[in-house]
């Protein structure tokens, strides 16, 4: 991984690597609704795609793909909670290409379907949006169901994926 202008700050090699990867992560945040372009992100930090994925996971605890999915679900949660945009439009707005993948991923992360989420949660008022979104960000795949946090639904596993298509248009 090459320095790309971060070593002038007297950073150790580990810190310089962190900063480069953080830049790539910020790029993903800014373009979360677009296709994940690992080769170009890897090139931006002077690494091969495989090395980029490996070190990203080492630094941030998950692969770029997994991080992006969580980021998209975080954005979807915001849109479902704060707007009246249809679930289908939310799905495409946050970067998913198929409603099935969106519903499956959302349920996998949150333990409930997008429609159930919308029915249960009210807008978060009087808090800067970036802050509310970051704190509502799901922590990892599957944890919602295992640990029963506030967003989880004990009845969520009773139906199958077909439930998630209810009211999606």
């Amino acid at each position: 991984m090459t320095s790309h202008g971060v070593t002038s700050l007297g950073l150790t090699s580990t810190e310089a690597r962190n900063r480069l990867l953080l830049r790539a992560k910020d790029t993903m945040d800014r373009s979360f609704d677009r296709e994940l372009d690992v080769p170009s992100l890897a090139a931006s930090v002077g690494a091969s795609p495989a090395h980029f994925i490996r070190t990203f996971k080492e630094v941030f605890g998950e692969t770029p793909h997994r991080y992006l999915q969580r980021r998209r679900v975080e954005r979807a949660m915001y849109l479902l909670r704060e707007t009246k945009v249809s679930v289908t439009d939310v799905c495409f707005d946050v970067g998913f290409n198929s409603l099935g993948t969106f519903s499956r991923t959302f349920k996998e992360i949150m333990g409930i379907s997008p429609t159930q989420f919308r029915q249960r949660f009210e807008p978060v008022e009087a808090v800067p949006t970036c802050f509310a979104m970051a704190w509502a960000r799901p922590s990892s795949f599957g944890e919602a169901r295992q640990e029963q946090p506030p967003y989880s639904d004990p009845t969520a596993n009773e139906g199958d994926l077909a439930d998630t298509w209810e009211g999606t248009t």
Binding site: T12, T14, A16, N18, R19, L21, L22, F60, F131
Partner: peptide, 15 residues
Amino acid sequence: IRDVITKGASGFAVG
């Protein structure tokens, strides 16, 4: 502390 900051995990610093 430096590790946390360079990873962007230090939270909202200033507005």
